[in-house]
Design a binder for these strands. Structure first.
Length: 483
RNA sequence: GGCGCGAUGGUCAAGCGGUUAAGACACCACCCUUUCACGGUGGUAACACGAGUUCGAGUCUCGUUCGCGUCACCA
């Protein structure tokens, strides 16, 4: 049978990296077996819905390449793919009523006040277990309440005795006492289904074979199974993915500043690197390889190798991986994305493409660019101690001499490309009987005012041009002479 | 608190009864080098604890501890 998985997000804001990974794994599971990947919007919570959030979902999936075969925008044989639209068709109510007929669900008219009286506080947490009060309402009472237009919800009727066992592909068989299963709400008083109910109904109607979701649903899965069984539907395979946490091993929250895909893009990471990194949080191939394109992941992915324990999201490793992507990137493609970051610091008419190439293999994320290249625009204020290098054996005095000697050579240079300049200065070093670094160090310092630069002295000169290079060396000579 | 799940270096992780317990990130050292990176080489660093099963346990079982999840008309 063809595998069908789905990604079923709620449009409530940015896409959390945990959700992105779930979306990825669902995609990989389907595509590894050449199955279908379905996008379904679960907008059953009227209050939490955020404008524009559906577009965020579309954009994220498109940017990462997780393209769906069926969905709200492209339709498909199981549409509509938006739960609020399905709700308007009366779909969920219809199925809820079927459950009532079977005695697997019942109307509940309890108001908030009564529900609150059922709450108790344990360890500072409010918990509530419904007492099945309305299960015992007579048919007449129910009819009367309904006729009076009294607000109601529909609850699942779970047994108090026995146990329910479900199977997860990763965790194996898990059994729980039915007494633990509360009578969860299926249809809310606003007529919308709860996530849990809509999920079961739609997954079945859409022929989903593998339900991929976060571990937080593990404890409600027995209730899902009771729903499937009540309907007489085939239970899908479950794959519960472990949590992604922050460095403190707590749930990655908005406050951390890097909890969503959008946050990460804003921080200067590439979508493909983010996806690659996230794929490896909780899963690994049976090789030692770490860099994968999406098609390669599809090929390699074996969901049975998904981990069971939570993983810490490590920005340092993401940064490393992003850097690897930069190194492997086509220069033109890199330039296109880096250009705005370069233009943010350089307004002079320099060869920006050349500068981009200097920086491409030395940064981990786009915002790193600025501090690497800002000196091209203007030499910053700097301490003349920078001229002192133990390794190159340079001092302020030696630097002054080198710069003074070299100035007329640079001024008179016939060609100003990197190789010519290098040969020229190397010749000087040989004549003086010193090492190349002894000469280059002060020049680079004079040109940049920085301890580190994305290129060597002659490369910098070739970008700066003769006029600017000469002027910077002159300024350095003046600075050193005045000490 | 009940229930469930989890536990290998700081982090991601391999391991699936017998290994010198991989690899990657981070960190450190050295090499390379027109600086810093990159790259190369090497290094520091782990099986939470206690019982059992077994000739033999990171691997299996149980308990303890710790962590996480869940107990909503949120998903």
């Amino acid at each position: 049978m063809k595998i069908r998985t789905r990604y079923a997000p709620s449009p409530t804001g940015r896409m959390h990296v945990g959700n992105l990974r779930t979306a990825l794994y669902a995609y990989l599971i389907a595509k590894h077996e050449d199955g279908d990947y379905i996008l379904r919007i679960e907008d059953t919570d009227q209050e939490r819905e955020m404008e524009g959030a559906v577009d965020i979902i579309y954009n994220t999936l498109r940017q990462t390449g997780l393209l769906w075969d069926e969905g709200p925008d492209i339709g498909g044989p199981c549409g509509p793919y938006v739960q609020s639209v399905r709700q308007k068709q009366g779909l969920y109510m219809e199925y809820a009523k079927k459950l009532i007929e079977k005695g697997e669900a019942y109307y509940c008219f309890c108001d908030e006040e009564r529900l609150n009286s059922l709450k108790k506080t344990v360890n500072g947490e409010e918990i509530m277990v419904y007492d099945k009060h309305c299960l015992h309402l007579s048919k007449e009472e129910i009819e009367a309440n309904l006729a009076a237009g009294k607000p109601f919800v529909i609850r699942q009727n779970n047994p108090m005795e026995g146990t329910t066992t479900f199977h997860d592909e990763l965790y194996g068989d898990i059994s729980v006492d039915n007494a633990e299963l509360d009578d969860m709400v299926l249809i809310k008083s606003d007529g919308f289904p709860t996530y849990n109910f809509a999920n079961v109904v739609d997954d079945h109607l859409m022929g989903i074979t593998h339900v991929v979701r976060g571990c937080e649903y593990l404890s409600s899965t027995p209730k899902y199974n009771r729903l499937y069984e009540a309907f007489g539907w085939e239970i899908p395979k479950y794959i519960h993915c472990p949590t992604i946490t922050n460095e403190e091993h707590k749930k990655l929250s908005k406050r951390s500043g890097h909890s969503s895909f959008q946050d990460l893009v804003d921080l200067g990471y590439l979508p493909e690197a983010i996806l690659n990194y996230v794929a490896l949080l909780g899963w690994c191939p049976d090789s030692e390889r770490e860099i994968f394109t999406l098609p390669e992941l599809v090929k390699e992915f074996d969901y049975l190798r998904i981990a069971k324990s939570p993983a810490v999201f490590d920005m340092a490793k993401l940064s490393w991986m992003n850097g690897e992507y930069f190194k492997a990137m086509d220069p033109a493609a890199f330039y296109e994305k880096a250009e705005p970051y370069i233009k943010a610091v350089i307004s002079k008419p320099l060869d920006l493409k050349k500068i981009a190439e200097m920086v491409r293999t030395r940064i981990e994320k786009f915002p790193d660019i600025a501090e690497q290249i800002d000196f091209f625009e203007e030499v910053p204020e700097y301490d003349s101690e920078l001229y002192v290098s133990r390794k190159q054996k340079t001092t302020k005095e030696s630097s002054l001499k080198v710069l003074t000697d070299v100035l007329p050579m640079v001024e008179g240079a016939a060609a100003f490309d990197n190789d010519s300049l290098f040969e020229l200065l190397k010749g000087y070093a040989e004549k003086e009987g010193v090492k190349v670094g002894f000469v280059m160090w002060p020049i680079r310092t004079a040109l940049s005012g920085k301890a580190m630069t994305p290129a060597g002295a002659t490369e910098i000169m070739s970008v700066l041009g003769k006029e600017e290079s000469v002027s910077r060396i002159k300024a350095a000579v003046k600075k050193l002479s005045e000490e």
